[in-house]
Simulated assay, not measured.
Amino acid sequence: MRKLAAGNWKMNGSAAALAEVKALIAAHPATSCDMLLCPPATLVARMAEVATGSALSVGGQDCHAQGSGAHTGDISAQMLVDAGASHVILGHSERRADHLETDALVQAKTIAAQAAGLTAIVCVGETEAQRDAGKTLAVIGGQLDGSLPPDMNRPDALVIAYEPVWAIGTGRTPTLDEVAEVHAHIRAAVINRYGAAAQGMRLLYGGSVKASNAAAIFALPNVDGALVGGASLKAADFAPIVAALTQA
């Protein structure tokens, strides 16, 4: 299994930011892990052009469950593929909170993404209140049950990212033991759902990952990479995280 260092640029970046992409490619002309950036939709095609022939893949941050139609402002999985994307992030906590996305909608989007040939990165995670109430594993189990497609298709076509909501962009992270517990729970859940082949499904950790803590996180069992937010915007911040993953 090749591990995955994925960067989510969220609602950040303009054409000038493509200089950071060129710097990242220069820092990692070849890697033993997969390297991915997911910019805003306005930059997907331009970033994919810059990344052509390099070790960097490009993804989207969301897609619609339908292939086309009267959905103003939305983008379909097929459109992302046409723009040069190979991956798409789905069910991110910010989408679930800001756009009231349900598990059922995330599942429909995941099915659409895989049908279009994209690798779906499905996000799950608990709020601080849910963790304090001791509901972390139950919440994540419910999200997995409702958000994942009935069939796995291929282990490499479905990625799960655990992102504790309270750790995103805050500088706080769960303890290593807490991360390991959740990832073990997710691994058991996907094996129970899909069978032994799910042992090869990549599980990412997301939530204030940075160069200073990446190596310790990547050393944990069932952590196959990271979904990185703010630290992916600058090559100087993201390149060391990629390096840590190649050494894990």
Rank of each mutant, 00 (worst) to 15 (best):
S212Q: 15
P40E: 06
A77C: 08
D82M: 05
L118V: 01
S86Y: 00
A27G: 03
G229W: 03
D132I: 13
H28D: 03
D156Y: 04
T52C: 14
K109V: 00
D74H: 13
I140H: 02
C63V: 14
A85P: 08
Q78M: 09
K210I: 03
A226S: 14
A55K: 06
T72A: 05
G200H: 14
P240H: 10
A77N: 01
A23Q: 11
I25N: 07
K135P: 01
P40R: 07
T136F: 01
S57C: 12
V50G: 01
E163M: 06
R96F: 02
A27R: 08
D151A: 15
A243E: 15
D34T: 08
V81P: 04
M47P: 03
A120W: 00
R2F: 12
E163F: 10
E178Q: 15
A157Q: 15
G142F: 09
G53T: 07
M1P: 10
G84N: 09
G60N: 05
Y205F: 14
V159F: 00
A19T: 13
L233A: 10
I191L: 12
D98C: 14
A19L: 13
A189N: 05
A157N: 13
P29M: 09
Q66L: 13
A30C: 09
G117P: 05
P149G: 02
G73F: 13
R95E: 04
V81E: 03
A138T: 14
A196H: 11
C123L: 07
A239Y: 13
N192R: 15
I241Y: 05
G134M: 12
L24D: 10
H71Y: 15
A26T: 12
E181P: 00
R172D: 11
G207K: 11
D34N: 11
Q66E: 15
I121H: 02
G134E: 06
L43N: 04
V139H: 04
R46V: 14
S232Q: 11
A97L: 11
R96C: 08
A48Y: 03
K210H: 15
A51K: 02
P221G: 03
A97R: 15
Q66S: 11
G60R: 00
A197F: 01
L148G: 00
H64L: 10
S68V: 04
A133G: 08
A196S: 15
S147E: 12
A77H: 02
A19H: 06
T246S: 15
I168A: 01
G146M: 05
Y162V: 04
S76D: 04
C38K: 00
D224H: 15
S32V: 09
V182L: 03
V124E: 00
L105Y: 13
R193M: 08
L37G: 06
E178A: 13
C33L: 03
I160W: 01
S86E: 14
D98W: 06
A235I: 09
E181T: 15
C33I: 13
N12W: 14
K109N: 00
Q78Y: 04
N213T: 07
